[in-house]
């Protein structure tokens, strides 16, 4: 029976990193969950992004070795509306992706998540995404990296944005472009605290986003063949391992049924009080491991440690 891989995105430790947590502290917390993978945000974790110093590179590889973690996904951005009055050209977008592919490869990553600027409230990416990515498919192939845009609330699975990504994969026949599912799309109860940069204006106007778009987990079956990596977004898990927003008791059995064997990379996005994220990530790992073990036991498979 297929088994999940467990990882953590350093996005989980937002606000702590840079105030009360060092990169090495973060490695310790990730390794302490029993994870095998670490996900970073390139321009967050690398102090001199896009050009790491030799000293930083030495430290990066030493930390990977010491904590026995493999690099999973590197998050990057294509800031299409680069100034108030000007959008990135296709050439600029392609150069940004090429730069991040090379950097990700240098650091040992297998996936690159470029976050494109959008043109509307449904998060339709700027049209440069397609030619900018297409110009990089050969490079991605040479570097053995899969480029993954994320399917992120409020964009559901059944949506023209997702359809366009799939049409691109089918048209080009590429193995170096896929979909990253952000489990925030399954959120089915309202958020009372959003750790993604909440402001008064967002609280007033972004109701569908904060209330959850409630994508049925069954929709995963339509796209799972294109999904090699999942960001396990969550916001609050209480001391009884009850997640207040994300229905893991439905997500985990569906992913198991579909044979998903990629990473679940924790992405905590809740209250940003100091150090809360460390415990929240640990609870999520305990919860998902428990659900996976229960599924395996009920279906005659391996019980994971």
């Amino acid at each position: 029976m297929s088994a999940f891989k467990y990882g953590v995105s350093l996005y989980s430790y937002t606000e702590d990193l840079g105030t009360v947590m060092s990169l090495e502290d973060a490695f310790d917390h990730v390794a302490g969950t029993g994870s095998t993978g670490i996900e970073i945000l390139g321009e967050t974790s690398i102090p001199t992004y896009p050009e790491p110093t030799t000293a930083w590179l030495d430290s990066w590889f030493a930390l990977l070795d010491r904590y026995q973690l493999e690099p999973t996904n590197m998050a990057a951005w294509v800031d299409t509306r680069i100034t108030i009055g000007r959008n990135m050209s296709v050439e600029e977008g392609a150069a940004q992706i090429a730069q991040d592919l090379r950097l990700a490869h240098r650091l040992g990553f297998k996936f690159l998540r470029p976050k494109f600027g959008v043109i509307d409230g449904e998060l339709t990416p700027d049209p440069i995404w397609q030619p900018a990515v297409e110009r990089n498919l050969d490079l991605a192939h040479r570097l053995d990296i899969v480029i993954l845009p994320e399917i992120h609330s409020p964009t559901p699975i059944k949506h023209p944005v997702t359809d366009a990504y799939i049409a691109f994969i089918e048209r080009t026949g590429t193995k170096n472009f896929g979909l990253m599912i952000d489990t925030g799309i399954f959120q089915d109860r309202p958020l009372n605290k959003w750790g993604g940069g909440e402001t008064d204006e967002i609280r007033k106007k972004a109701l569908s986003f904060l209330n959850g778009i409630k994508v049925p987990v069954e929709h995963l079956a339509d796209v799972i063949q294109y999904v090699p990596f999942i960001q396990a977004k969550f916001h609050h898990i209480d001391e009884n391992l009850h997640d207040h927003h994300i229905p893991w008791d439905r997500i985990v059995p569906m992913l198991k049924k579909l044979g998903y064997a990629g990473y679940l990379s924790s992405e905590y996005e809740g209250a940003r009080d100091p150090w809360v994220s460390i415990e929240q990530v640990r609870r999520q790992h305990a919860l998902i491991r428990k659900l996976e073990a229960e599924y395996d036991a009920a279906h005659g498979g391996n019980v994971h440690a």
Binding site: W77, V78, D79, T80, R81, I82, I84, K115, F116, G117, V118, I119, D120, G121, L123, D126, G197, T199, D200, E201, I202, K205, A206
Partner: peptide
């Protein structure tokens, strides 16, 4: 006043206070 290009246009900029 942060402009996040990946935010919907109505939230460009967002005011982080």
């Amino acid at each position: 006043r942060f402009r996040h290009p990946y935010f919907p246009p109505e939230f460009q900029p967002v005011f982080v206070r």
